[in-house]
């Protein structure tokens, strides 16, 4: 099932990501999303910011239909057979479209191929015995032969600077390395949209800088859920502010992140670089 992805995408239309009126409550009744509206065009890098519990991770999980699949699942049913993945009641009105196709039971496989999701905790994503096997997991499932999958995995490991780690068990790597392996595993599926959940959380400064440089060099649509507002300024021209499951602001990152009152109201702080800039500007004005 090796498909030519580029031509595949060319036939589809619409924005890269469209979310309309998306609501979601976890099975325990906790309402995580309350009518999210979001459109991301091809080529855009968008930051998703907001306080803890705002619903950022939940939103990302909807992009490739991992949720609401889980709601209809208990521990004893398996949802990877695509028909049962979303319950019929949910399938009536899809709220998420990727590249023009709705994310529903019928297009689930397609959505999962187009959206690459980087989980917050690398340990959730790495489960194979060696780094190489793990990165090759996606390509193998997409139908590539053993040789093709191996080649692609090595390529992607080289892209994240970890080709030497290929034979090592993932749990022996450092946290930063593990996260880069995860990224390689996602890239190996050649997604059109990269959805990254707190990609710089828990990284030491050097690993963080490397990871940001790495992300900056990647083409395609990026949707980054994060608290790292300096990274947002470096990577994302546009920012969406989410709070209590709703989009409360959406606009150019510099303007939005410079609005100290707005950020304060939603549990965030103006990034230090903008704070300093504002202070210098004020001082200069004072000196004149």
């Amino acid at each position: 099932m090796t498909v030519d992805r580029k031509s595949d995408y060319a036939t589809a239309g619409g924005p890269a990501v469209r979310v309309t009126g998306l609501e979601y409550a976890y099975p325990d009744g906790r309402r995580a999303l309350a009518g999210v509206e979001l459109v991301v065009e091809a080529g855009e890098s968008v930051a998703l910011v907001g306080p803890n519990g705002a619903g950022k991770s939940t939103l990302l999980l909807h992009l490739n239909g991992i949720l609401p699949g889980r709601a209809s699942r208990n521990l004893f049913t398996h949802v990877h057979d695509l028909e049962s993945a979303s319950s019929p009641s949910r399938a009536i009105s899809p709220c998420v479209w990727i590249d023009g196709s709705p994310v529903d039971a019928k297009h689930l496989r397609e959505a999962r191929r187009k959206v690459g999701l980087l989980f917050q905790d690398p340990d959730d994503q790495l489960f194979c015995n060696t780094v190489l096997e793990d990165v090759a997991f996606g390509p193998r499932n997409l139908g590539l032969s053993v040789d093709q999958a191996r080649r692609r995995a090595l390529e992607c490991l080289a892209r994240v600077g970890l080709e030497d780690a290929a034979p090592r068990p993932p749990h022996h790597l450092s946290f930063g390395e593990r996260r880069r392996v995860c990224l390689a595993g996602v890239l190996a599926c050649e997604p059109m949209v990269l959805a990254l959940d707190e990609p710089t959380a828990n990284l030491d400064p050097r690993a963080r800088r490397r990871f940001i440089e790495l992300l900056g060099g990647l083409p395609g649509v990026k949707l980054i859920a994060t608290h790292d507002l300096e990274m947002v300024l470096a990577l994302c021209p546009r920012t969406v502010l989410l709070d209590r499951g709703r989009v409360v602001a959406d606009g150019p990152s510099r303007g939005l992140l410079d609005d100290a009152d707005l950020l304060e109201k939603h549990g965030l702080e103006r990034p230090l670089s903008l704070e300093l800039e504002a202070r210098f500007a004020a001082e200069r004005r004072g000196a004149c």
Binding site: I66, L75, L117, F119, V146
Partner: peptide, 23 residues
């Protein structure tokens, strides 16, 4: 259990269909 759900999710994200395939 919680972890296994998340790992399973991550596997689904990378095209897991229930058929073990490795290198």
């Amino acid at each position: 259990l919680e972890r296994s759900l998340r790992v399973h999710d991550a596997m689904l994200c990378r095209g897991w269909t229930g058929e073990p395939r490795d290198l």
